[in-house]
Design a protein around this nucleic acid. Structure first.
Lengths: 297, 297
DNA sequence: AGAGGTTACGGGCAGCGTAAGGATC
DNA sequence: GATCCTTACGCTGCCCGTAACCTCT
């Protein structure tokens, strides 16, 4: 007898074009996926997938089933949404988060989501925004809090908040000037996020425009950046909003400068899968929390 | 995790307003139904049914779920119908049949259905038409082949075939006349179907119109009627079409008479439940077979 | 040889049926 | 006490995960 589990499994296999991928996504093993698909094909008496040369493709019947399955899964979500109370929303949500958010309002979000949907497990994955975007596109994540704008057609996106970028130093670095000019800053190495991230590129452009060369240390881990700033190795180029939570009080301070960095614009983004009700709900909460955050000019 | 089985169970409990009824309908035990409903309520975190004073009623949430569940079950049927091949249609169908049909083309129908849907089990229940209609209305049957017309709003009905009614005797009864007048017939007891059936009423009316009184033996079992006719107890008032199959050749014959009985008009009828695809399909086959039957004037 | 899907097999647990329990008329 | 739903309990069978196997590049 056809059940939701088989249909959902089929859906993921069809989307990811991979049994292993679907297995991982559904938190089960690959043989289990094989069996569920086999059972589905057996129940319907129809071949759904063409297992050929390294890739899985849908037969004609498979495509037909895909449309039906999507509708069914969507309507089951809608049922849970409409009929069930908040505790009915269950399962595991893979949430991809940019590190800045981790150090500002992510805990608040988790707390709020836990309160609203006690049976929804959240799996937090911290990564840089380009990777998060990639993983959202491959449906490896259910929801992402990341730097935008995000123009992908397959992703729903909504604006969250902005963070000003500042130049932050530890106690070992001192400047004589009240307002530190760009050339004084350039004497130290600059510490910021990985190469292909928005802030890294913006920083590079800032110095190219002014004709100066700056040494930039890029690190995927904010903790490393902060540690280096604390040790006086260089100047961290990060949102000052995270200073409070990332180090002991007074150990880091922002310096005054007329160098202008574009702000970080954060977005919440998720792929439009049939079962993305949970993603939408969590996105709504994220938007509400982010709205209350200071958005320094 | 909500599955189709729970939803279907809920649907039947809601329709029949009874746990026991649903259990019987689903070929399981009543505690199993209790558990499925309990699980559904638990999953959704919502009370769906009010178990009060001898009757089950839907809460507001229950009514909401009913609509969703109906849609889901309907769409699963449509999925099986569209994507699966004929072997995908499975389950048990309760088919209620009027006895006349049993002795004409029911075997042909069963054969055809078995060939078309090898995994569909058929449970045949023979009863008189008024009872069949009642059981269709209470969803105790999935499909009925019975005397019509059927005017009920809750039942879908389509015309099948007509059978002329004749006066049939065994070898012990002989008439001098070539064409036997009504008064000669009235000298013997008449044997036909139960009191509240169409033919019984028609027969009664026939004699009332002619001002004569006839003794009518009514029996729910055609076999009894035929046995009595064979024994010369009376004249059977039945469709001559069944003579061939119900007794040895030449043991029964129809007598010529100008007494006119209205014909039997058979209909196929089924309740419009969300999962009535199978019923529709079998109804179609029944219509096709019945169309080929002689419809004597 | 390694990536990816299938088949084989043992074990755990969900869900079933029997049977007893409770509520309501 | 009869009817109808719930709870208890032992058991079965399904489905899962591990592991071995197959196939194609």
């Amino acid at each position: 007898m056809i059940d939701f589990r088989s249909l959902e499994t089929f859906l993921w296999v069809a989307n990811l074009r991979s049994f292993r991928g679907a297995a991982e996504r559904l938190h089960t093993t690959q043989p289990a996926v094989s069996l569920r698909i086999a059972q589905l094909e057996d129940d319907l008496g129809v071949k759904l997938l063409e297992r050929d040369r390294r890739s899985v493709s849908l037969t004609e019947k498979g495509q037909l089933l895909l449309r039906h399955a999507e509708r069914l899964i969507r309507q089951r979500s809608s049922l849970i949404e409409n009929v069930g109370d908040s505790s009915a929303m269950s399962g595991v949500m893979r949430l991809g988060v940019s590190e800045t958010i981790v150090h500002t309002w992510l805990p608040k979000l988790i707390e709020r989501v836990n309160a609203a949907y006690p049976n929804l497990e959240i799996e937090i994955e911290v990564d840089i925004s380009p990777n998060l975007r990639e993983r959202l596109l491959t449906k490896n994540l259910d929801l992402g809090l990341l730097l935008g704008p995000i123009g992908d057609f397959d992703l729903q996106s909504k604006r969250l908040c902005s963070y000003r970028i500042g130049f932050v130093v530890g106690k070992k670095i001192k400047f004589r000037q009240k307002t530190v000019p760009l050339e004084a800053i350039a004497e130290y190495p600059l510490l910021t996020f990985s190469r292909n991230t928005q802030p890294y590129i913006a920083l590079r452009e800032l110095f190219e425009r002014s004709g100066r060369h700056a040494k930039i240390h890029a690190s995927a881990s904010l903790a490393t950046v902060v540690r280096m700033a604390l040790d006086g190795i260089g100047i961290a180029v990060i949102p000052p909003a995270i200073i409070k939570t990332i180090s002991a009080p007074g150990r880091l301070r922002e310096i005054n400068t007329n160098a202008k960095m574009p702000p970080f614009n954060y977005f919440v983004s998720w792929p439009a899968t049939p079962s993305s009700f949970a993603a939408q709900k969590v996105a709504e909460i994220a938007i509400e929390i982010a709205k209350r955050e200071r958005t320094p000019s």
